[in-house]
Design a protein around this nucleic acid. Structure first.
Lengths: 248, 248
DNA sequence: CAGTCAGCCTTACGCTGTAAGGCGTTTCGG
DNA sequence: CCGAAACGCCTTACAGCGTAAGGCTGACTG
């Protein structure tokens, strides 16, 4: 039978299988060590076979991002708004720590897929439900997001990131030249991170609550402008919806 | 004179020149578009010539990080500690916005070179000068850093990041399906960012000031433990100080 | 039975970082 | 003044990368 190659029997590919294997590979080898060829090897196929399911690596990564976002916990709307915000923060943190290495990719990319926008929309809903007007909602949403993203990034990095410096400072030198860093170092250990995260989060929530007390309860959410204004580009220069991502 | 090749006369290479060209190239083409070959072309040499000055791309990037950190503004110690913290935040933000694309690399890497540690040490000094004990300093330093890093990342990304999604949601669909995002979008524009940053920063600073009022003024800074405990690894498994960085 | 399609394959191209080693010029010790 | 070493930059080569182009096989459909 030289005609038909004896194909090794294995589970057929699927977007689901590929995404799971990709996440596993990224957590194993990091974002840099990830490649289509290695992913294919894990799946028992060749790299080009993956292109049948994802048109490019960028598309695959966006699918992973969507998958992570979709799996991120959101609190029930029945809770008080402060508690809802708190749980959003912890939910985001959990998602980051579940995939620490992939999260380093997530945090430098926009969330403008459907799942990402839905996630952001529901968080904005918490601010609206609390009675903040659109402008204050926008700013507090952003500010709280800064804290949460920064914290998640650092924590995820702490569990996954290798040494940055090619020539790191030896510990003995650090202890001599950087006494303050040395002194606070015990509180930088992983076991301390949740408490540190909580401390900063409560500062943010308390500040938000204080502003809530100062502003009128039912702010304006009428569309401030009829046009959808892209956040980061001049209104004219919006990119087309090409299915190819040219920049990666 | 067939013996000596007519070498195009140009300024000789140096670490200084290479670093400047590298930063310029990164800001022009992004971290992904950066390569040793393109950098060499900008400098009028070949890629391998750069290895005479930097043993690897990772070493070059670390040098760039050091350069950015060293150029980051730090406030004079004569100011009140609240103002010092505020200026640290603005200084960090400025540094990020000066090199927005490279900053996306910075934020996912450790700052454990000499310049990085010195920077962190002097910020910790502000907390100590304010009278915080070591533990509170550690946590507030971290929490404030989370906010600042998250904000800087988002702002830098906003100025430099292309569309993340390979298949982004069209604006018309966004306006229909995500009314809250659409409503707050005017406040996400670049012109609004400084004000949003300030709002969140003042929340953090007010929270820190409140904690300052609650804790004893002269906390303990005696070394909590004689050993320098690495922040992110088990005490046993510290990496050697090899001059090669294997993980990138 | 022919046609179409899904699913997976091979081949090839231009790009990457960098290991290994060469060659002309400058600098320096004897 | 001369031989040797060091410096500054080079060429060549290799393994790995994403992916464009197209081929083969088996199943399903008209």
């Amino acid at each position: 039978m030289p005609r038909t190659k004896a194909r090794a029997p294995r589970e057929p590919l699927s977007r689901e299988r590929i995404e799971e294997a990709a996440l596993a590979l990224i957590e194993r080898e990091g974002n840099e060590g990830f490649s289509m060829r290695k992913l294919a090897e894990d799946l028992g196929c060749r790299a080009m076979s993956l292109y049948h399911y994802f048109p490019s690596l960028a598309h695959l990564r966006d699918a992973l991002l969507d998958r992570l976002v979709s799996a991120t916990r959101l609190p029930p709307a029945s809770l008080p708004w402060q508690e809802r915000l708190r749980q959003v923060a912890y939910g985001y943190r959990e998602a980051a720590l579940r995939h620490p290495r992939f999260f380093q990719f997530v945090v430098v990319h926009r969330m403008n897929t459907a799942a990402g926008l839905a996630y952001l929309e529901s968080i904005l809903g918490i601010f609206r439900d609390a009675g903040f007007d659109a402008e204050t909602s926008a700013r507090l949403f952003r500010a709280l997001g800064y804290y949460i993203a920064g914290a998640a990034l650092d924590e995820a990095a702490g569990y996954s990131r290798g040494p940055s410096a090619a020539v790191p400072v030896p510990d003995a030198v650090a202890a001599r030249d950087y006494p303050l860093i040395t002194a606070v170092n015990p509180y930088f250990r992983p076991a301390e991170r949740e408490q540190t995260f909580a401390m900063g989060l409560e500062i943010m929530l308390a500040g938000i609550a204080r502003i809530h007390g100062e502003t009128a309860a039912a702010g304006s959410w009428e569309p401030a402008s009829a046009n959808f204004v892209p956040a980061d580009t001049k209104p004219a220069g919006r990119r087309s919806r090409s299915s190819r991502s040219p920049s990666r």
